[in-house]
Design a binder for these strands. Structure first.
Length: 256
DNA sequence: ATGGTAGAAACTCTA
């Protein structure tokens, strides 16, 4: 089973890229972030037409998540259990016995701001809830835009990014707490090329200069880590005209 | 050098 995550930065704008990518990459499950669409505006027909079921949890203008699957979707649940959040950032569903969580972690804007404090609080609630989910689901995959680069190797210029939002110590500690629950970073289960990134700022021609960060991740429970056969970043969609600022991340799971 | 671009919406906010 091929699972993927992609921050599309407006599903309305990126729908042609998404349909093209689904046809080319043929993932079985795709978690989308920043759909920026209310559920009533979700392009269900176009996605259904190419064989994917979809569930969505969206809002106008900001945030919004969705899960697409060509292997069915069961037990769909929005939000972080036990945490009231006005932002639509989390959606979970079960596919072939795998509990899939799609997450759009708050960006945090800048260290020291209210949005940064919200991000840290949000990550604490997320970790608390994922601990519960790990207890309930042996096969758990948590895919999304974490808005955290875990290590220096995940940042094009770690000296310049030191202490900045997306790479500050408290954010990295919050990410490590997710790993501390027993989740594993699927990308780092395998050898990878240096300078592997998933996001490049639209500004300053960052993609062309390879000035990126790896902030989109697929975390897997031990049972899935043992079945993970590969994990890679697909740069194709980032090279298109009018792209998302993020590239998709894909993992291959071998299920019995 | 504290810029720059993109998206949605609406004369600004978020990323």
């Amino acid at each position: 089973m091929k699972i993927a995550t992609w921050n599309v930065n407006s599903l309305k704008v990126r729908l042609p890229h998404l349909l093209e990518w689904l046809d080319a990459a043929k993932p079985d499950v795709v978690c989308l972030q920043e759909t920026k669409l209310e559920d009533a505006s979700f392009p269900r027909a176009a996605i259904d037409k190419i064989g994917y079921a979809a569930c969505c949890h969206g809002q106008k203008t900001y945030n919004g998540v969705a899960i697409l699957s060509r292997l069915g979707l069961e037990d769909v649940q929005p939000g972080i259990g036990g945490y009231e959040d006005d932002h639509k950032r989390v959606l979970a569903a079960t596919v072939r016995g795998v509990r899939v969580v799609c997450a759009y972690v708050p960006n945090g804007q800048a260290v020291g701001t209210n949005k940064y404090e919200y991000k840290l609080q949000w990550l604490a609630e997320f970790a608390r809830w994922l601990g519960e989910e790990l207890g309930a689901h042996e096969k758990l995959a948590v895919l999304g835009d974490y808005n955290v680069a875990p290590a220096e190797i995940d940042v094009h210029n770690p000296k310049r990014w030191a202490g900045q939002v997306l790479f500050s110590e408290p954010e990295r500690a919050a990410f490590q707490r997710l790993l501390g629950l027993g989740l594993q970073d699927a990308f780092r289960l395998f050898p990878q090329k240096e300078r592997s990134f998933t996001w490049w700022d639209y500004r300053l021609n960052a993609f062309q200069k390879d000035m990126g960060l790896r902030i989109d991740h697929i975390l897997v429970s031990p049972a899935l880590a043992a079945r993970c056969r590969g994990c890679w970043i697909d740069l194709g969609p980032r090279r298109l005209e009018r792209p998302s600022d993020h590239a998709p991340v894909v993992a291959e799971l071998e299920l019995g």
